[in-house]
Design a protein around this nucleic acid. Structure first.
Length: 641
DNA sequence: GGGCCGAGCCAC
DNA sequence: AAACGTGGCTCGGCCC
């Protein structure tokens, strides 16, 4: 039995505009409206390779469907679409923003994105509610958009013929439904205090759109050479691993190497167990994770080699051919996606490829300990612990990200963004004093934990303090701290106790955030951003774990989420700065606490000062007590500092 | 052969 | 008894 009764949208009122005269009249009719819905229909998803077919603009109950293919000059549309007094309502506004900017030279402003608004309203709800137009129409208007007709429209590919009535009607409806949805969302946003969050997201939207349009340039030759070298070393590591396994597994007669897939965790585990790999306790190992293998690597050298292989394999598989294939053939640049509100904390994410996870280490990982890197890659000689002379390949993929000739990367990251957020928000006098006096926070922490003078803090004491500072904002317990530092659990317990005796306000702050979330079912950031939690059932066996997890998420959520608020505001300030100063500069990347621009060389200094100022202001807007440090760098490639 | 998922590992 | 937050990508292994 079909219990799903649908109410469908009535046929829309719309005007199909195919000539300049019609366009002129339509624009004049649209003037005076303070809210317009906007949608586009295109031949595909790429602003660099696909075509714009239709632009739909709805005012009240009437939609105008502009057939871009038969309009020579779209500039009259700017009179309404670029008018900052007019609110433009769009679903997934970033898409239309990019298409209109790239293919029609129209730069939308003052946007209300129904998709982002929905995400803001429902962050954390499980399962994650759909933010598709179909879902929103159903939720807010109680009616069903016919997917089939919409799909037929979008499946036209490089369609150049006439659009049928059904297609035009649905194109019109896609715009007509938006304002009523936005009005409902607006009411909800105001009711729950989420308007500042939505506003910040809407302001960030064109920044992210421009970033995606711009993309970034890769030195492909350098990249390939780097990967080739790593692949060569990977093969050597793989042969070495297989040789070490040769005694316990069947061998391939031709090469005398074992028949085991080194990439298969289950096969590797089985093999290692056959080889007698044990924990120091004598227990057989349970998995082949990095943690496990590094624990037993001293005793079982095959594990050491395997770890080397893994690191190399990760680099080759994730950053080899598949990565370079993502460079756009037309623009010659890498146009990654940035999802500005993917994480439930409010953080952005990146995909296709993920530019927020490009390795930041030189290969081999401990290279910095031996040589100060000079150039992007080379073979270097060094002396190992036993005094033997060895050669290593040095690779740094970030250095393959390069600006166009005549341009520089001007980039900056926040100095300890999350810890400063914590210091300010917790009002912890000790924590804040360290930052106010511009002291090294980790050294300071170490001095107090070990009861020694700041000048007497050893490297290892500072390392412990640094671990504590970071681990505790994630809510790590004694067990995890002990694991990380390689110490006994009771010792870790003492360190944590001492830490929270010193930073007592931090402890109280974290506890308060946790308690708030358990009481209210959501946590908040400094900008009022919400993250909802599924409240655990007290009768469930996992109740205690679930509550513990929410407490950690809520405390961390404030810190991570507020940091995301800070970075987004900084992005908006920076975007505005570039526009106001009319600089030849583009924001090309954001990696949580880092912003990188590609700037014409002669303007790099001005951009650097401006970027620092924008980022500091982004932080200080929310956090007034603790000072922020931002030190911009100007360079010919993506640097770590 | 495609979809899904967990393991493992990259980033902050 | 559990045990550190947020993501995305690739792989093997499993399913249909």
């Amino acid at each position: 039995m079909d219990t799903d009764s649908h109410v469908y949208l009535p046929p829309p009122s719309y005007l199909y505009i195919r000539d300049q005269k019609g366009l002129r009249e339509a624009v004049d009719a649209l003037k005076g409206h303070t809210v317009l819905a906007v949608d586009t229909e295109t031949s595909g998803l790429s602003p660099h390779h696909d075509a714009l077919f239709l632009v739909q603009i709805a005012a009240g109950d009437l939609a105008y469907v502009f057939d871009v293919r038969s309009l020579v000059d779209l500039s009259p549309l700017k009179e309404v679409l670029e008018d900052s007094m007019v609110t433009k309502v769009l679903q997934n506004a970033k898409f239309d923003y990019k298409m209109l900017k790239q293919l029609a030279g129209i730069t939308l402003n003052n946007m209300f994105c129904t998709m982002l608004a929905e995400r803001v309203l429902t962050t954390g709800i499980t399962p994650r509610p759909s933010t598709s137009l179909v879902a929103l129409v159903k939720k807010y208007l109680g009616v069903t958009l016919l997917k089939e007709v919409r799909a037929s429209f979008h499946d036209k590919g490089a369609y150049r013929g006439e659009f049928g009535d059904a297609e035009l009607e649905y194109a019109a409806n896609d715009a007509l439904v938006l304002v009523p949805i936005a009005e409902s969302q607006m009411q909800e946003l105001m009711d729950v205090g989420l308007l500042p969050t939505a506003t910040l997201e809407f302001s960030t939207l064109p920044v992210v759109g421009d970033m995606e349009l711009t993309g970034c340039r890769i030195d492909q030759k350098m990249w390939e050479e780097t990967i080739d070298k790593i692949a060569h070393d990977r093969e050597q590591a793989s042969v070495q691993v297989l040789k070490q396994m040769a005694n316990v597994v069947p061998q391939n007669s031709l090469f005398g190497l074992p028949v085991v897939n080194i990439g298969s965790h289950s096969q590797v585990l089985t093999t290692l167990l056959k080889m007698g790999v044990r924990e120091s306790s004598g227990e057989p190992i349970k998995d082949t994770s990095e943690d496990t293998l590094s624990r037993v690597a001293k005793k079982h050298s095959v594990c050491e080699t395997l770890l080397q292989y893994r690191a190399l394999d990760k680099l080759v598989s994730a950053y080899g051919t598949s990565f370079l294939n993502k460079v756009d053939k037309g623009t010659g640049r890498l146009h990654a996606n940035f999802n500005q509100l993917r994480a439930d904390t409010g953080r952005s994410s990146s995909s296709g490829p993920n530019l927020q996870q490009i390795p930041s280490f030189t290969y081999p990982k401990n290279f910095d300990e031996y040589v100060l890197a000079e150039g992007y890659k080379a073979r270097y000689e060094f002396t190992d612990d036993e005094g033997k002379l060895k050669t290593v390949t040095v690779a740094d993929l970030r250095k393959c990200f390069i600006p166009t000739e005549g341009y520089k990367y001007v980039g900056a990251d926040y100095s300890q963004q999350e810890l400063r957020v914590l210091a300010d928000a917790s009002d912890d006098p000790i924590f804040m004093k360290a930052y106010l006096n511009n002291e090294d926070i980790h050294t300071n922490t170490a001095a107090m934990i070990y009861d020694v003078a700041v000048s007497a803090v050893t490297k290892s004491q500072r390392r412990v303090a640094k671990t504590l500072n970071f681990a505790l904002i994630y809510g790590a317990g004694a067990w995890k701290i002990a694991q990380t530092l390689g110490i006994e659990e009771d010792e870790a317990e003492k360190l944590i106790a001492k830490y929270f005796r010193i930073y007592s306000n931090v402890k109280a702050f974290m506890a308060a955030k946790a308690a708030f979330a358990i009481k209210n079912g959501y946590s908040l950031t400094v900008n009022g951003r919400r993250r909802y939690y599924k409240m655990p059932n007290p009768t469930e066996a996992t109740y205690k774990q679930d509550v513990g997890k929410i407490k950690r998420q809520a405390a961390n959520g404030y810190i991570q989420g507020s940091s995301a608020d800070v970075t987004k505001l900084a992005l908006v300030y920076t975007h505005d700065f570039i526009r106001e100063k009319k600089l030849d500069s583009k924001i090309i990347m954001v990696v949580h606490d880092e912003i990188i621009t590609e700037t014409r060389a002669d303007q790099a200094d001005e951009m650097a000062r401006g970027l620092e100022d924008c980022m500091v202001r982004g932080f200080s807007y929310f956090f007034k007590k603790v000072p922020m440090l931002v030190d911009a760098s100007i360079s010919d490639f993506w640097t770590k500092d």
